[in-house]
Design a protein around this nucleic acid. Structure first.
Lengths: 325, 325
DNA sequence: TATCATATGTCAACCCTTTGACATGTCATT
DNA sequence: AATGACATGTCAAAGGGTTGACATATGATA
C-alpha cells in the first residue's frame, strides 16, 4: 500500500504539500493540487485512516452491541443505526452478545481498546457498574444505567396499556401476556406492568408467562404457546412482547384450529416489517425504530461534541390494528 | 485514557517491561507481572488497539458489505459472519450499500482506508474492475468477479430445478417465477435458468417476472403479486427467489381467496427462519447460511495467512417441504 | 570461578499522518 | 521599493505501542 511519502516522491512534491492537498489547508496552486490527485490515483493511494485515528484520538467508529442481528427488531435497528452513522461519517462495528455476559464484557473491552467514539448498548446482561467504568459516550436502548447516561426507549408502559385495552375492548375475557425474562433490568418490563394494571382495572382475569431469554429461540416460543393453549383453553387474548412471539401464537392457534381473531385475539410489539407481511398481518404496538436509531447516533455525537442532551428519551408508541384482533 | 507510559510510571517499571508483560515475551518475574497487571487494572488501562494496528499493519477488522441487514437473509448471514469472526478474534464492520453504487463504492474506499483485513462482498452493483483494484482479501457471496477471487454461493441452478420439479410434481400447470433484477450479474440468476430449463423440459407453460431491485421493498412485492394474480389467473405455481417474496405471494392469494396450497402452490428460497414461523410455513430451497458465513470468514483468513483456498465454493441446497406446496 | 538463565533497564527506530514553526521565493499592488 | 498574498519546502514533534540491540545485575549451576 502506497504511503503519503510515495505519493510525494512520485509527484515531486513534499509530504507536507500532499498533506495540505489532502486536508485542504494552506495555499496550494491548482496545478499542484491536480498533480497530487493524479499521482494518488495512479498509485491507488488511500490515506491510512489508522494513522489518522491515532493522531486525532478519534476512530469515527460506533460500537453497536445487541443480542443478535438475526432478530428482526435488532436487524431493523442495526439498519437504521448504520444509516444514520453513515450520514455522520461514522462506521458501525457489529457486536452480537448472544446475551452471554462474557461475550458482552469482551466486546465492551474490545471497543474500548479500539477507542470507538461511542457505544450503543442494546444488550444488557451485566451489572450497571460494569458500564459505568467506561468513559466513552454510551447510549442505552431500553435500560437506564445511570443518572447522566442517555437512554432511549419506547413508552413501554403505555404500549402495554394500549395493547391490553384493545384486547379488552374487543371482548376478551381472559388474557395472557408473554414477556421476556423479567429478571433482566429492562424498561421493556413496564409493558408487563401496563398489562397487569390495565387488566386489573377492568377486572379481567390475566396471566403472565416469561420466556427464558430474549434471544430468538424458536422452539422455546413454540413450546410455550402450545403449553399455554393446552393448559389454559379459556384464554382468548394474547399480548406478546414481540411480533415474532405473536407470530408463533398465531401459528399455534392455527395448528389446533383456534380461529384468529374470532376465537383468539393476538397482539404483538415492535411492528417489525414482518408484522405487516405475515398472514394474517399482526396487530401490534409500533416502536419508532428509525427514530430510535437516529437518536442513538445523535446522542453519541452530542456527547462527543459536548453538546447538551436529554437523558430520558422515551418515544411515543402507536397501536397498529391489523388482522389478528 | 491511560497509556502504557502511565502504567509503567505507576508500576515503577519501564515501558518495555509493561510491553513485555502485555505481549508475553522475554523474561518477566511473577512479582513484576502481577504488579503490572494490578496497575493496569487500577488505571483502567486498555492498550490502544489503533496504535497496535498501525504497527502491525493489521486491523483485525472484516468489512461486510451487503444490500441491507434488515433483509432477513442478510441479517442471518451477518449474524453468522459476526459469530465466526469473533471466534477468530476479528471484528465486523457493517456496511449496507442499499444497492446504491455510490454508497457501495464509498464503503469500499472507506474499508481500504481503514486497512481492514478483508472484505466480504454481498452487494454487487459495481463493475468487476472496481473490485479488482482492491489488494486486500475479498470473498464474494453470489458473484464471480475474478479468476482468483473466491466466491461462495449455493447451488442456484439446482435450487431452481428442485423447486420447479416439486411444483410440477404437485400438479401445477402454469408456473410463474419471481426473481431479482437479472441485470445484476449474480449467480442467483441461475435459479431462473434452472426454472426455465425444468419447465421447458416438462413442457410446462411458464413466465418470469423481475423485481426492480434486490432490496426489500414491500410495496413493490405486493404490487407485483397482485398484478400477477390479476393478469394471469391461470398460474397455479409460484417459485419466488426469496422467502419474503413467497410470503407476499401467500398474502396476495389469501387476500383474493385463492387457497394455498390447493389452488396455488408457492415455494421460496433461502429458508430464513421466518419461513418456518410463518403461517402457513413456507416450502423453500434452503441455503446453508451458517456455512456461508463460516466459509466467508475462513476464506478471508486463508488469504491473509497465505494458505491455499478454493475459488469456487458452491454449496449444496436442500428442498424443505412445508405447508405452501 | 566461570557460565548461564533470569530479570529488568535504556535507547532508538518504526508504523503513517498531521501540524506548527519557520524559511524562501514569486508576483502583483501600492 | 516596500508590502503582502500566494506557493512550496524543510524540520521536528506528536500520537501509542512494539521490538531489537545492548547493558547490567542476580542467583544458580557446572
Amino acid at each position: 500500500m502506497a504511503t503519503i511519502h510515495d505519493v510525494a516522491q512520485q509527484a515531486g512534491v513534499s509530504v507536507t504539500t500532499v498533506s495540505r492537498v489532502l486536508n485542504n489547508r494552506g495555499y496550494i496552486s491548482e496545478a499542484t493540487r491536480k498533480k497530487v490527485f493524479e499521482t494518488m490515483d495512479a498509485l491507488n493511494y488511500q490515506p491510512n485512516e489508522i494513522a489518522r485515528s491515532l493522531l486525532r484520538k478519534q476512530s469515527n467508529i460506533i460500537g453497536l452491541i445487541i443480542p443478535n442481528v438475526s432478530h428482526p427488531f435488532f436487524s431493523e435497528l442495526a439498519s437504521q443505526v448504520e444509516y444514520y452513522a453513515y450520514e455522520n461519517g461514522c462506521k458501525v462495528l457489529l457486536c452480537n452478545s448472544q446475551l452471554d455476559p462474557a461475550k458482552e464484557r469482551d466486546y465492551i473491552e474490545m471497543l474500548k481498546r479500539n477507542r470507538v467514539d461511542g457505544i450503543i448498548m442494546g444488550s444488557h446482561t451485566l451489572e450497571v457498574e460494569e458500564y459505568v467504568s467506561l468513559r466513552s459516550p454510551i447510549v442505552t436502548i431500553d435500560r437506564r444505567i445511570g443518572e447522566k447516561i442517555p437512554f432511549i426507549s419506547s413508552d413501554n408502559y403505555r404500549g402495554g396499556v394500549l395493547a391490553t385495552e384493545l384486547l379488552i375492548r374487543k371482548g376478551c375475557r381472559k388474557l395472557a401476556h408473554i414477556c421476556g425474562n423479567l429478571e433482566l433490568d429492562l424498561l421493556a418490563n413496564s409493558r408487563s406492568e401496563g398489562f397487569r394494571d390495565t387488566a386489573d382495572k377492568h377486572g379481567i382475569e390475566h396471566m403472565t408467562i416469561q420466556t427464558d431469554m430474549n434471544v430468538f429461540d424458536q422452539e422455546q416460543y413454540a413450546r410455550i404457546i402450545q403449553e399455554l393453549l393446552d393448559q389454559h383453553p379459556d384464554v382468548d387474548g394474547i399480548f406478546a412482547t414481540s411480533d415474532i412471539i405473536a407470530a408463533f401464537a398465531v401459528k399455534g392457534c392455527v395448528k389446533i384450529g383456534r380461529r384468529v381473531p374470532d376465537e383468539m385475539r393476538i397482539i404483538g410489539y415492535d411492528d417489525v416489517s414482518a408484522a405487516a407481511w405475515l398472514t394474517p398481518a399482526i396487530t401490534t404496538v409500533q416502536q419508532p425504530i428509525a427514530e430510535i436509531g437516529r437518536l442513538a447516533v445523535e446522542l453519541i455525537r452530542r456527547q462527543l461534541d459536548g453538546e447538551p442532551y436529554e437523558v430520558d428519551n422515551t418515544l411515543p408508541v402507536e397501536l397498529i390494528e391489523r388482522a389478528t384482533t
